[in-house]
Simulated scan of single mutants.
Amino acid sequence: MEHLSLKQQILDLEKQLMTYDYNELFEHLADDFFEYGSSGNIFDKNAQLDVAREDPTVTNSITYTVADFSIKLLASDVVLATYRSLRHNDNKLVLRSSIWKNTQGKWQMIFHQGTPAK
């Protein structure tokens, strides 16, 4: 089995979280996670879990395309990821940034921001 690069690992995790699967969110969002959403609202881990629990068929059916993905190592165990996402159901383009922290060998997102793009 080929060892995934750190960039590929973080990209894969970002894409997993885009599915709004409850178990993925529970595992990969840190307990103190918070987000400045592209809607202008602020979310924490519990709010994201509530969304996944409310109507998983709707959130799971939304697909995204990710472009211009890059990472920057902020510390040996902290990564900043930046990219653009295109949500297919409404063609909404969003600039995104996430901070990931590796705790006991597991990457968890501690912060995310989505900013609508033109």
Score class of each variant (00 low, 15 high):
M1T: 07
M1S: 12
E2I: 10
S5G: 08
S5T: 14
K7C: 01
K7A: 01
Q9D: 08
I10T: 07
I10F: 06
L11W: 01
L11Q: 13
L11S: 07
D12P: 03
L13R: 08
L13Q: 09
E14W: 02
E14H: 03
K15G: 02
L17K: 02
L17S: 03
M18E: 06
Y20V: 02
D21P: 03
D21R: 04
Y22M: 06
Y22G: 00
N23S: 12
N23P: 01
E24L: 12
E24K: 09
L25D: 03
L25W: 00
F26G: 00
F26M: 03
E27D: 10
E27V: 08
H28Y: 15
L29D: 00
A30M: 00
D31P: 00
D31F: 00
D31I: 02
D32T: 03
F34I: 08
E35A: 05
E35K: 06
E35W: 06
Y36G: 06
Y36C: 09
Y36F: 14
S38I: 02
S38V: 08
G40L: 05
G40V: 04
G40D: 01
N41K: 07
N41V: 06
I42L: 08
F43I: 01
F43K: 01
K45M: 02
N46R: 09
A47C: 04
A47T: 04
A47Q: 07
Q48A: 01
D50P: 00
V51Q: 02
R53H: 12
E54R: 13
D55N: 14
P56L: 09
P56T: 08
T57N: 10
T57F: 03
V58I: 09
V58T: 04
N60G: 15
I62T: 01
I62Q: 03
T63S: 10
T63H: 11
Y64A: 06
T65Q: 14
A67Q: 14
D68R: 11
F69M: 06
S70I: 10
I71Q: 05
I71G: 05
K72F: 10
K72T: 14
L74A: 09
A75W: 05
A75K: 14
S76F: 06
S76N: 14
D77K: 15
D77S: 15
D77P: 08
D77E: 14
V79D: 06
V79S: 11
A81R: 05
A81Y: 05
T82K: 12
T82N: 12
Y83M: 11
Y83I: 12
R84C: 04
R84H: 10
S85P: 01
L86M: 06
L86C: 05
R87W: 01
R87Q: 06
H88L: 08
N89A: 03
D90H: 01
D90Y: 00
N91W: 01
N91A: 11
N91F: 04
K92A: 14
K92Y: 02
K92W: 03
L93I: 11
V94M: 04
V94W: 02
L95H: 10
L95S: 12
R96I: 09
R96Q: 13
S97D: 11
S98E: 08
I99M: 12
I99R: 06
W100F: 11
W100Y: 14
W100G: 11
K101Q: 15
K101H: 13
T103Q: 13
G105H: 10
K106L: 15
K106C: 13
W107V: 15
Q108S: 11
Q108V: 15
M109K: 15
I110C: 14
I110F: 09
H112A: 15
Q113G: 13
Q113T: 13
G114V: 11
P116E: 14
A117C: 15
K118L: 15
